[in-house]
Amino acid sequence: MNGSNAYIKKAPFMKRFVYPTSIVLITWIVSTFVYWNSSKVGSAGLHYFLADASGILMFLSIGFGSILIYPMAYFRGASTAERIAASLVTPIIWIIKEEIRVSEFFTLGKTLYYALNQLHVMVILGSFGLMAACEIACRMIVRKRTGDQIKIVTALPVSAMVIALIAFYCSLLWEGGVHWFYFFVRIYRAIFL
């Protein structure tokens, strides 16, 4: 057993997977509930405050939950597959919820195609990018604490971060993401019209 394995004890599944996932998932569920019901409070000021606060939490839990989940799972001995799965639970549930919502407007084929839109792709690729950054950060911590000469920067996390950055640029920064959007619509036309 090497130093890092000795340093990181494998916790039970509940602790290494369910707890970290639940924190973010429950945050998303609660903030979503508060957001959509904030207008029911009598005061306009309170409505605005609640909507703003819950909106931020909602956004963070979907897009940035992996920053919390991944290191928690890492230091509780979760395998790489478990860490990735745990980090993707909330974004995937959000995407499923979106798919159900848009099924009110579109046929099944168009609803399924909607899952490939740039926001969904960005959330997933962004989560991988954040996981990669967390992986590197966790390795640095382990190396510092154990003195193990583990390799910190490896090809896989770096590739994930680069892909996430490219996706971020194309989906949001490059003229507000319109080019990706137009490409998405062009493919839609080719398939459905």
Partner: peptide, 18 residues
């Protein structure tokens, strides 16, 4: 308006409006 909030430009697909 009273039914507005800062995040209604982000939710329920509103981001598609740029």
């Amino acid at each position: 308006p009273k039914d507005a909030d800062p995040w209604c430009t982000w939710v329920d697909g509103a981001l598609w409006y740029g």
